[in-house]
Design a protein around this nucleic acid. Sequence first.
DNA 1: TTTT
DNA 2: TTTT
Lengths: 186, 186, 186, 186
Amino acid sequence: MASRGVNKVILVGNLGNDPEIRYMPSGGAVANITIATSESWRDKATGEQREKTEWHRVALFGKLAEVAGEYLRKGSQVYIEGQLQTRKWQDQNGQDRYTTEVVVQGFNGVMQMLGGRQGGGQGMGAPMGGGQQQQGGWGQPQQPAAAPQQNFAPQQQQSAPQQQAPQQPQQQYNEPPMDFDDDIPF
Amino acid sequence: MASRGVNKVILVGNLGNDPEIRYMPSGGAVANITIATSESWRDKATGEQREKTEWHRVALFGKLAEVAGEYLRKGSQVYIEGQLQTRKWQDQNGQDRYTTEVVVQGFNGVMQMLGGRQGGGQGMGAPMGGGQQQQGGWGQPQQPAAAPQQNFAPQQQQSAPQQQAPQQPQQQYNEPPMDFDDDIPF
Amino acid sequence: MASRGVNKVILVGNLGNDPEIRYMPSGGAVANITIATSESWRDKATGEQREKTEWHRVALFGKLAEVAGEYLRKGSQVYIEGQLQTRKWQDQNGQDRYTTEVVVQGFNGVMQMLGGRQGGGQGMGAPMGGGQQQQGGWGQPQQPAAAPQQNFAPQQQQSAPQQQAPQQPQQQYNEPPMDFDDDIPF
Amino acid sequence: MASRGVNKVILVGNLGNDPEIRYMPSGGAVANITIATSESWRDKATGEQREKTEWHRVALFGKLAEVAGEYLRKGSQVYIEGQLQTRKWQDQNGQDRYTTEVVVQGFNGVMQMLGGRQGGGQGMGAPMGGGQQQQGGWGQPQQPAAAPQQNFAPQQQQSAPQQQAPQQPQQQYNEPPMDFDDDIPF
DNA sequence: TTTT
DNA sequence: TTTT
């Protein structure tokens, strides 16, 4: 709660992929997203236009994670305010590895969807996502269900899919999104 | 020069070690520092006070690197504004590894020494640094060891006054913290 | 609690005066401070060094106001994170007037004292403040004059130790700047 | 160029009106915009949803002013990074008045249009603006003319209307947008 | 005066 | 992997 020093990251960029939502044993949501920021400049030597994209790992917790899971999609533009956090983990060779993420959590964390609601529309039969791409904005809630106001309600079973499927052996990314899950080997 | 998106990191913390200064083939300086920020909170379960320190790698370039090398020391408190950058490199096994740093460079980068000049001065014969620890402030300018001084501008001599005048006992603080006698407009 | 948009101000500067503390009918504290930031540059035309100081009105609320009242003094260096707020009021002629302030409040507000504890201590009989100027750091806790102390929590007594023990000559710095002996992970 | 202290404002919000562009005697552009940020919360007492909008005066200079003038419109969503500046001026009664603005200028200033290009489309015959309202995004350039790369070129006559009409006696806002123009009475 |  |  108290802190000595300031540790703040501010990002505005677009998601490289749909958010990955997981749930902690406590039931709290975690959303992992990657955000691209880019810079472009004219190369002094060659005179040609160059561009470099920086990719940022962002982990959102709690309510912000749920909102991210519902509204953000690949391509969505967001404002993020969080803090830098470096996690230590062991790779398959037992070697220490470090991963740095922007953690968006608690009262210091901010996530703002930018660009206004986009795409979608009333009476849209099929859920968006089948290869379509939105342009910066944010979409329709993913699981609007019958009662949208229940999205943040206690009964998170609906949105806690790992309870039905506690193991995801097929999970292929070999770097930990966050160290809350004890036994994940990476 | 142009950029799409925002990639900004703001840190206030203390250096874990003296800066490491290197020079690029171009002659430009690079300073690597590690900055600690910490958070403390009361554990709800055990009721005891807990603290976690986060360490940040920071790389400063150009003039800010030179200033860091001259004035910052282990323990110095700084304000840093830079951007996140993740570098890819190969370890000894040829495996891809990634390191994330806060890069402080060009016009977007900011480095401000905090806490006012401290320690040093008063006929201190030996350069500070032999295990001593200053509390937050920043020190006397220090010559960049074996580093090529031609990298520095001519007036650098003036700003390293301890060479001509190693002792300035009268110099308490020759830089006012602020013009407090300005007419505050409210 | 929710917000559309971002409204954030970050200041690092020195106080132009001692904080002015007031208490709201509710008992909550409000601290008004003025912070100076300055920029200096070389005038292209005349070639001379110029400097401009900008003064910022800052209003802190709640616990941060209490901390400001206890520890900040004229000259103290602080990091402030708050939001812009413009108040409308009527002058004596009934004309509308506007005042813009940086409001530091609630969970989005941050106030960090910079530069480490300073001055005070060492058998100083009288409370600091009689025209002296500290250089950046923050001082000994000070009793809030005629202010209602019931606003403060019980453990406040402990944090105002100079009442029971006005002199602590042995107390140089009883708060470490940072755990430098932590294992820095890189 | 150098600075002691940090003076930084970050805003994300929507324009309340089209930008007002003016040109200084030097030919440099100035854009004045107002940005809204808002917060909403549930009133504890009444239980009803409440919202408060904060309006920010923002002054952009130079190239960013030109970009603002071309692409931003009423309703556009922007990210702004600038610094607080309070100007003193005299009202018609000769009384001192102060106006605080967010100044976006030089290398520290940032203006990012959010939400992606909107409206418009290829072969759009009529320029947007006739009372239409865009939703957050930014539009077609206002005066794409024949040579878009001339927008920032010396011949700014096209976009320096005050040269043809040096006086704007009809100008009704009685508070100065910025103090570069000597004789404006407000 | 904007947005949701 | 995103956006322009």
